[in-house]
Write a protein that binds this DNA or RNA. Sequence first.
DNA 1: TATTGTTATACTCTATAACTATA
DNA 2: TATAGTTATAGAGTATAACAATA
Lengths: 148, 148
Amino acid sequence: MSRASASGAGRAREERSPAREAWALLAGLVHSGPPPFIVVARELGLRPPALGTLRALDEPKTMSEIAAVLYCDNSNVTGIVDGLEERGLVSRTPSEKDRRVKLIALTAAGSRVRSRLMATLEEPPEWLSKLSTGEQRALRDLLRTAVE
Amino acid sequence: MSRASASGAGRAREERSPAREAWALLAGLVHSGPPPFIVVARELGLRPPALGTLRALDEPKTMSEIAAVLYCDNSNVTGIVDGLEERGLVSRTPSEKDRRVKLIALTAAGSRVRSRLMATLEEPPEWLSKLSTGEQRALRDLLRTAVE
DNA sequence: TATTGTTATACTCTATAACTATA
DNA sequence: TATAGTTATAGAGTATAACAATA
């Protein structure tokens, strides 16, 4: 029996799924260093959910929208925004259209903190920077295709 | 002035750094759905740090090693392992070489939970599965290069 | 009635510091 | 002395349920 024993369709010279291998390789690369998000959170003296809230505030958002971004219950956002408000990083104002809704927006100080955060997160990791420019372009083009 | 105004070396036809764009595209793809790790944690009734501990236990590890994987203080691991031990998912036994050290190992039940976890995490996301096989191979090869 | 956000509660995660038991 | 792990403490994150205000 020299035929492949894997479960895939009947393709000669069976190979391990390239998608699965790519995904495993990517996980290994991404987890190879300290998680940037946690590192930045410590530098800024904020906890990850608070930082995730700042990241989401590219424009003002409601409490519910923030809960959706954080994948947590609505009730948690109250405390998280409370903390950010006490630090003077966000403001909380009722919407004029529907007074049940509160709009959370960055203050000037919050905008500065968010800029520092985004600058760090947008910095490519070492494994990516060390690829050749041609390889970086090839990767970029593949990811553009994936985004469609 | 038709020359590029960006800060890079003097290359004609300046382009945005392909590494930065690739990194931004990747972040967008990875954050496009609910975080699998959090989803699985809820399904299994475990919190992310407890799940991260199980994931790390491909073989027995010390408390300190687990703390390093979780990027948290040593003292936190006590409570996390306590919870896993109460659920019968891990065992805690002193090392024979150095009795200060405790070795944490999966039980049979813990091994089953870890298998379910890993099966989910290893599943490629939709954006990757929908690439053509050729594109998947090209991505895999690029990532192999990055790993070296 | 339904929805947005808050409060109350209980539990988990987290860092710091002090402690123990080994080395 | 130094190290591995624990305990104590205080504060933040989390889900559930009940609630107030608004729609």
